[in-house]
Design a protein around this nucleic acid. Structure first.
Lengths: 111, 111
DNA sequence: CTAACGTACAACCACATGGTTGCACGAATT
DNA sequence: AATTCGTGCAACCATGTGGTTGTACGTTAG
């Protein structure tokens, strides 16, 4: 298990994921740390707009910034993504529970 | 595989998931079809507000309504939830790809 | 030292969101 | 037939969101 997430934080995470640009930033920063201006170069919007997207991802805990000289490198946090996934997994469990009538599914011996 | 989803629809799905009330409605309607007023009774807000939440879920394809006399029964669509999950899975694949350096991960022999 | 770069942040704008109330309409009850 | 119930929808309001430009400030380069 990846440690329980609050409903409010879950809302922030899904909110952050609800934008194509932010999902793309997440993909790029999963491959490796990228500076904010490095990210901004790839999108047809102002630097400040990209900066705001990064801030939304950061507040959701999906991304962290580390200082490197005058640059801030952005890197994704796979664990927070896993937490969002766990929420969707839970929904699937509810659905399967309804179909099969099993009660035993509620104990989760995961990771 | 559950059929490809567009980026715009994915945004709508995550947006719909980014609200605790809507996630709760999703959980309730995964267990079985519930009327809109049946749902509204459980939340501390107006009927119209709940109706709007259902509409957001419906536009995201996470829920469908079926007519039953004067009531509209709301039931969740597990496949659409699976599509959102698939997006997060893809992110995890990107991350693992970065760590292991594997290229073979991109072929997905899933369902 | 000065200039250029990368970042941060504030102000502003148009539009979306989440809530409200009120009204209209078809279906069920009496 | 009249009423009540469940729903849908429009109007309205406060606040949030995604974008812009402009300014300020620390860091690197000349």
């Amino acid at each position: 298990m990846v440690a329980r997430i609050t409903e409010a934080e879950l809302s922030r995470v899904f909110r952050a994921l609800a934008d194509a640009t932010r999902r793309d930033i997440l993909r790029r920063t999963l491959l490796g740390a990228v500076s904010v201006s490095g990210l901004a170069a790839d999108y047809d919007m102002s630097f400040a707009a990209v900066q705001k997207h990064v801030a939304v991802l950061e507040e959701a805990g999906l991304v962290a910034k580390l200082a490197a000289g005058r640059e801030r490198l952005v890197r994704a946090d796979p664990e927070q993504i896993a937490r969002a996934r766990a929420c969707l997994d839970e929904l699937e469990v509810i659905w399967r529970h309804r179909l099969t009538g099993l009660d035993a599914v509620l104990s989760e011996p995961e990771e």
